[in-house]
Design a protein around this nucleic acid. Sequence first.
DNA 1: TTTCTTACA
DNA 2: TGTAAGTA
Length: 93
Amino acid sequence: MTPDHPDPDRALYTISVAAQLAGVSPRTLRSYENLGLLAPTRTSGGTRLYSDNDIVRSRRVTALVDQGVNLAGVRRILDLQDENTRLREADTP
DNA sequence: TTTCTTACA
DNA sequence: TGTAAGTA
């Protein structure tokens, strides 16, 4: 059940919408990016555009921080989760 | 009006 | 993290 292109045009959100979807403030999303935890794309004008993956990533960061994990810990866990995802994709293409 | 950066508390 | 200033 993993359709290849059910919707070729993935949704992108401006920071205000992304913040609502992620349950945080725009200030927090910018902060995550400054910390190197998030990498939303930018328009030619410089406006951040958040993908659904950016939203879920934000939620993971928020969840970890809520649990008391520090910056180093969040980076580490995110890297491990990403690597785990890559490995799964390599095993089940 | 919204977003951007920088900066202060 | 919230808010303000000054822009684009």
